[in-house]
Design a binder for these strands. Structure first.
Lengths: 98, 98
DNA sequence: TTATTTACTTTGCAAGACAAAGTTATTTGA
DNA sequence: TCAAATAACTTTGTCTTGCAAAGTAAATAA
């Protein structure tokens, strides 16, 4: 193996994205409003982090209506869960292994 | 308690600083060259991360000579170790608690 | 019909990350 | 003795991030 810090996934360095993924690891189809509240983010900020995670295919997006109101919700993809687990392993290896 | 992601220490979000601190948690007086090699960093990059950690009083710096060559080495301060532990706790709480 | 809600997008800026090159002060080697 | 190397930076420049605030759109509720 090479350098331990290089195993850390750059996209998960950011604490907001870390928070989003932590939630999506254990809950499916969490919606925009809930993430926003839980993580205490502005709309724009959340939207941009969501876009970054989707670009990597780490999350998938479902748009629907609840009653008559639009509702956007998110789920981690298989690849996202995998990448996140690997990130956590990399973190652990870094912390314990030096 | 408030928002779980706000307990994450911004200074430790960066993987290089995370790497530096991980090393300094378990080894005292690691020198510039060794950190640079281990983490595979350029001089300037390492210097700037070191400066950021020192500014927070998370590490302290010792300048000496080994033989006739100058040698700069680093140690985590008590405050640095404390802050790092709290960061790890915050990470754990985030990952397990959502 | 005006206000509200949801979920964005756009704008603009400040901060961060990093490589590469330059600097200083020694020191070792030819 | 003079050129090259070493250690540890600092400076410069650029590209990327992060984020708030404001603007937008489409629908509904008052």
């Amino acid at each position: 193996m090479q350098n331990l810090i290089e195993n850390i996934n750059k996209i998960f360095e950011n604490r907001t994205r870390l928070g989003i993924m932590s939630i999506l690891m254990v809950h499916d189809w969490v919606d925009f409003g809930e993430l926003k509240e839980t993580l205490n983010l502005t709309d724009g900020n959340l939207a941009s982090h969501i876009a970054a995670l989707e670009k990597e295919d780490y999350i998938q997006i479902k748009k629907a209506f609840i009653g008559k109101r639009p509702n956007t919700s998110f789920q981690a993809t298989k690849a996202g869960k995998q990448a996140f687990k690997e990130h956590l392993n990399a973190l652990e290896a870094l912390i314990k292994g030096m």
